[in-house]
């Protein structure tokens, strides 16, 4: 399928889904295009009853439709038809938030492996990870899971060759140029640095603490401070 406008690439996913990838000189711009489109599509839901899901990430947007009603060619044409009407600017949140971390907590400690990948010692890993300000680029994977970027180049490390079956709740993790906190225990393929005591999903409203556009910093705390936090 021919790309158009801010879309650099369109590929099929399944009989009821298409994937759009966005252009930009850097991730920042591509991410903005992506959220503008996501917003425009959520507003188009009224006219497009066949639109089922719209799942944005860093520079991509998955569009899921009702395969009874339309096929991917019709969806492609509908998207293309919508493109020239400049989609409204998606204003994300840009609140500043701080996440405390007990680095090296025994339940979530891959610092040795991270050291092997990066050649850094533990103190350098903690310093690099906690002195950077990150932006939330996407929310997903699990409720409240925020993908944050970008970690300093020296800290880049690949995903695990085989994902772990169980990562503990609150685990602070890195993979490639991203960092995140696991809001609940789940399988995962990232390297773990420590534990964060904050609850990232509201139990009643199911809303996420971290939102796209937020500016986030990590702050090293002691085991004692972690346990105190958890008790409250």
């Amino acid at each position: 399928m021919q790309p158009f406008g801010a879309i650099k690439h369109i590929v099929p996913v399944s009989i009821d889904s298409l994937m759009l990838y966005f252009n930009g000189p850097d991730m920042e711009v591509a991410n903005t295009h992506c959220y503008q489109w996501a917003l425009a599509l959520s507003e188009a839901r009224q006219q497009w009853p066949w639109l089922r899901e719209c799942v944005p990430a860093y520079d991509s947007l998955m569009v899921v439709f009702d395969a009874h009603a339309v096929d991917m060619h019709q969806v492609y044409l509908a998207l293309k038809d919508m493109a020239p009407k400049a989609p409204p600017r998606g204003e994300g949140s840009n609140a500043k938030k701080t996440l405390p971390v007990w680095y090296g907590a025994p339940e979530a400690n891959d610092l040795t492996q991270v050291g092997e990948h990066t050649g850094l010692c533990v103190d350098e890993i903690v310093r690099l990870h906690s002195e950077t300000t990150y932006k939330v680029y996407a929310v997903g994977f699990a409720p409240g899971f925020a993908y944050m970027g970008q970690t300093p180049k020296a800290l880049h490390c690949p995903r695990l060759a085989t994902p772990r079956k169980q990562v503990p709740k609150g685990a602070v993790a890195i993979a490639d140029n991203q960092t995140a906190v696991y809001p609940s225990s789940s399988p995962g393929g990232w390297h773990l640095l420590g534990l964060c005591p904050l609850s990232l999903v509201d139990r009643d409203s199911h809303s996420a603490f971290l939102k796209v556009g937020d500016e986030v910093k990590f702050e090293a705390i002691t085991e004692h401070a972690y346990r105190n936090h958890y008790a409250h």
Binding site: V13, S14, S17, M19, M27, V55, P56, A57, Y58, D59, S60, L61, M62, V64, A138, G140, F141, Y147, P158, R159, A161, T162, P163, D176, Q178, G189
Partner: peptide, 16 residues
Amino acid sequence: SMLSEAIHIGAIQIPS
């Protein structure tokens, strides 16, 4: 390596 993106039902992931 790639950026995380949406996963649909039946997607066939190939880890390293």
